[in-house]
Design a protein around this nucleic acid. Sequence first.
DNA 1: TCAATAGTGTCTCTTAGACAATATTGA
DNA 2: TCAATATTGTCTAAGAGACACTATTGA
Lengths: 209, 209
Amino acid sequence: MVDIALFTVHEGELRALLLQRANAPEKGRWALPGGILKPDIDRSLDETARRVLRDKTGVDVPLLKQVTCVSGPDRDPRGWSLSSLYYALLPSDQIHLVAGRKAETLAWGRASAPGRRLAFDHRHLLDLALSALRSKVELAALPLHLLPARFTLTQLQKTCEAILERPVDKSAFRRRLKSDPSLVEVEGEFVRGVQRPAQLFRASPEFEF
Amino acid sequence: MVDIALFTVHEGELRALLLQRANAPEKGRWALPGGILKPDIDRSLDETARRVLRDKTGVDVPLLKQVTCVSGPDRDPRGWSLSSLYYALLPSDQIHLVAGRKAETLAWGRASAPGRRLAFDHRHLLDLALSALRSKVELAALPLHLLPARFTLTQLQKTCEAILERPVDKSAFRRRLKSDPSLVEVEGEFVRGVQRPAQLFRASPEFEF
DNA sequence: TCAATAGTGTCTCTTAGACAATATTGA
DNA sequence: TCAATATTGTCTAAGAGACACTATTGA
């Protein structure tokens, strides 16, 4: 089967989607969205993950990455199990599109401390997915999939800070971005307010996370 | 199932173990060692990989890492398949311990260009495993599992060069190693020859790849 | 002595971090 | 004008790459 940590940023915090289990085992406990492979429908495990997220949340996520496989006889009370873990990124302006189906209650928990006891080994899975995401961003990958289509450099910086849970130096951050080909200035578009207007950017076509 | 790229360094070259398939499909073609999960024996996929290598080569490898899962209906002519890909590292002084069983012929191929057409998508799998290994070494991880228990810094450098397939600067390399806690000087032990003796090192207990 | 390899020193260039300075808006 | 945020500049220190130098052995 597949399990997915769906991340987004809200109120300056990196959050993960949790579902309250409607059936035994662990009924009532919160868990990562997950589902089983359907070989007659899915042409790959990636497609399984995408389909499961579509079914459970109604959204088609822009980014889905496999983290690892977890396996063993003790993960699930029903016996030996194998699960492919994914993380997915949802732009912060699309949180409202997420709507549960199949009578499962949804909630967004803080990624690094969801504040609920999770079912099975899902707390461990969440930690693994979070580590994988952090490593990428630590290595200078830009998490543009967590932002709206057009965004300011400050928004991008805040998003990185939410993922890393530490402050990032503004000057060094922008210096690095200047030579990053995945970022494109949107000509003449600004965010205005009671301050100096901020330039808008978008992901370039060759951007890859 | 699991497939494993077993790497070692021989004659300054990074090599991968290949087995000639004894049965259909793709009988006679070279392939990475692989096998199927046995839930009654294996307590995890990692154990499956370890057991498969033991069965097919007779050696118990010191390092085994999962790279990714590959899946889909077209990987194997027999239909939808799922495989967890691993790489394993074998110390260069243990190559002679590898002995095939079950009437399969063994061979060591150059990791970056095995020189034979491989079965199924195994050429792709080998490339994936090689990339994963290279990334680690590129990020300053020391591939000590490819070396004998005691080794010189020159041996370590040559091993890195074999993996990366590019020269590495001696001075910068050693400068970096000076502050690396995974390396421990073996007191008073040297390799001698018609030249200045070389200090021997070993992996420290807290070394992790 | 010499060849061969081990090990060190020195320069330059790039980059990250810290933090200060300047710029531009609406109220 | 001022508060607030955007954007840029400057200084310093650490590290990587290039390459030359010194050290120690056995023959």
